[in-house]
Each structure stands twice: as structure tokens, then as C-alpha cells.
Computed example of a mutant assay.
Amino acid sequence: MTTQPTGKQLHHRAEGSPTAPPLFLGPSLGTSMALWDKVAPELSITHRVVRWDLPGHGGSPADLIGPGATVDELAGLVLSLADSLGIDRFSYAGVSLGGAVGLHLAAHHPERVESLAVICSSAHFNGSKPWQERAALVRAEGLAGLAESANSRWFTPGFTVPELVEDHRTADPDAYAACCDALGAFDIRERLPRIAAPALLVAGREDPATPPAHLREIADAVPGAALTEIPRASHLAPAEQPEAVLTALRAHFGGGARRGMDVRREVLGDAHVDRAQARQSPFTARFQDFISRYAWGEIWTDPTLSRRERSLITLTALVAHGHYDELAMHVRAARRNGLTPEEIGAVLLQSAVYCGVPAANSAFAVAQRVLSEEDEATG
């Protein structure tokens, strides 16, 4: 049973639209939410991103966990945070210990996890002994000495992120040691085949802590999981190779855009969408993604209104603003959504009253042309 925290919460930062699909980002031991600084802002274009700090790291209270802590407890803290934000179901990506939390959530709380990405992590962390030794060292001597080796454990030679190394140095020793206890006790290998959420495993090719073989073990056990290896990346891949990690996460968590593209084709037709895709350039790619994800993936899929009703509203709005090229496209869409020519005419007549006779006059001309073309096409 997952332990639910009382009172205090994990320190977190939410970015992106509150109506966008939620995505939680989990940190590695010794770091803070700053681990995601080069990735989270881009992900927040398409998601409601929630970054969180481990207990005793960044801004999270140290006394959220104690000696003998488990990944189950950390997962409980994440669920409590989600509940406090009114988030029932979410996607999740985590690094190292944060990735272990994601695996636990997907295996034990499948109703909460929409999609999962596990980065530079493992289903087990080589047993309890090395973590017991590290926890004892930190409890006795603090973190200053251990932080000196952070660069060699976290990054490829010659690379560093000073802010993350400072996070390591200033973390609370007791909370850090409790996280070591959690890593030492973690082994979820037997439950991996039960994970049903779409899963992506991301390995740093030069990661000495959780080498690619650890991620491959998870990918082989989780049904349908995909594995990506990132070159020139060690243990903190989102900090060292943010563009490669971002590309992998965008592709994996892009469900809203894919769903939106399906609806866009159903309403506007394959021919129109294919033409729009053919005209797409690097300059317009993000706008096309925005249209597919937001207009079609969120608004047109909202079950509050039927597609017929949405066509009625859209026709009126296009007449009001004089967007007659778009109007022609949406007259065709309205026919696909079940509107008769008589109903389309009634909408335009209503628009004449509230949007103006000249606007409706132009709209009738456009609609008549489109409907005549449809009549000719059907004989």
C-alpha cells in the first residue's frame, strides 16, 4: 500500500497550459528540478509540465522521508502532489531514481499513468550493499566529499553543469541517505511484464551508473516498450544532451497531436490535410503541430459539443471574420459532419442578422460554389 504523506508536499513547478495533458518530470538522486531546465520549457508547449524535487533536494522538505525509505513512499508523494493539483491521470518521465518512481507508478498504479518514459535508470540498482555504504558515509560525513565525484558519475569527460553539482553539495544528508535506502531496496523486475502504459526507455550510451543494458532489460520485459540510446550522454542525459532527449520525449508523448491529426482528417478530409502537410516547412512545423494538438486534438475532441454543433459555430465565426477560404473548407467539413445544404443556408441567413448582410452575401457565394461542386462530383 502506498504511503500517503501528511501535511507537507513535494516542492514543484508547473509550466504550460492548465488544460494541456499533464506530464510529471522526476529528478535523479542529488539533483533538483533544474535537471530539466533545458527540456521542460519546450515540453510545456504541448503539456502541463510538473517538475518536482526529491525530499531534502531543491525546495522539498527533508522530513518527507526517513531512514529505510522506499520507492513506494516516493511514489506516494508524487500521487499526493498530483491529487493536490487536481490531476487524476498523467504521463511521466523520470531520470535514475525518478525513473524508478515512474516504473513503480506504472506497475502499481496503472490507472494513474497514461504514458511512461524511463531515462538512465534501472529496474534494480545492483543490490543494497553499495547503497547502504553510501548512506552510512553521507550520514557520517555529509555530502561535500561525494559531490567532488559528481562530474565523473554524471557526465562525460569535460562536461559539467555547475548548478547541478551545487544541488548535490547542498542536499540534506539525511534525506539523501534515505533516498539511497530506497534505491538499495528497489527491484521491480518481476512486475515489469504487468506494465501496460506505452513505455519509452532512454539510455545514455556512456552511462556508468545505469548502462544501456539496464534499460534494455526493462524494454525486453515491458510489453511493446521502445528503447533509444543517446550517444555522448552519461547519467544525466537531459542536462548533457537535451535536444536528443527532447526529440525522443516529443515523439513518445505526442499522443495529442496524433489524435488531433486523426480528427483533422475525419473532418477536413485526407486531400486537404495532405496538401497542408506537403506545404509544411521547418518554419511552419510548430504551427502545424499546434493546430493538430490544440484545435483538433483538444477542442474538436471535447465531447461537450457534437461535431455538427461545432460546424455550426465554426461557420458563423468564419463569416463574422470574413475568412472565406477557410469557410469553403468548413462548408465541406459541415457536410461530412451531417449538415444538409438547407441547414448550412440557415446558418448563413442567421449570420446575415448578427454579422452583417455583406458578409453573409459573400458567404452564400462561397457556400453555393462548394455545394455545386459537390453536386457535380456526385452526379
Rank of each mutant, 00 (worst) to 15 (best):
R191W: 10
L348W: 05
Q277F: 07
S84L: 04
T2L: 12
R335L: 08
A237P: 03
L97W: 01
G204V: 09
A177I: 04
L305G: 03
V161T: 05
C355N: 12
E163G: 11
G16R: 09
I299R: 04
L305V: 00
E240Q: 12
A144N: 10
A271Q: 12
P282I: 13
E42D: 14
I291W: 00
G356R: 06
G99L: 09
I87N: 02
G322Y: 03
P55H: 06
C355G: 06
C355W: 02
F287K: 00
L249Q: 05
F24H: 03
A199M: 13
L137K: 08
T340D: 04
A221F: 04
A233L: 06
T170N: 15
L312T: 11
V357H: 03
C355Q: 03
L64T: 05
E42K: 06
D220E: 15
R259L: 11
E163T: 11
A100L: 05
L327M: 00
R258I: 00
V101D: 00
D325Q: 08
R286E: 12
A14W: 11
L227G: 14
A352T: 12
L103F: 09
Q280W: 00
L192K: 05
F253G: 10
P21H: 10
A107F: 04
R205A: 15
P198M: 10
C179W: 08
E148I: 07
R265M: 02
P41I: 07
D83L: 04
A136Q: 13
E374L: 09
G158D: 02
A196N: 08
A199N: 07
L236K: 01
P18Q: 11
L81P: 04
A276S: 14
W300V: 05
A140V: 04
A197S: 10
I230A: 10
L74W: 02
V118G: 03
L105S: 04
G7F: 02
G356E: 02
Q288W: 00
T31P: 09
D375G: 00
L25H: 09
H109T: 07
D63C: 02
A34W: 05
G255W: 09
G59A: 12
A171D: 10
P238R: 08
V165E: 13
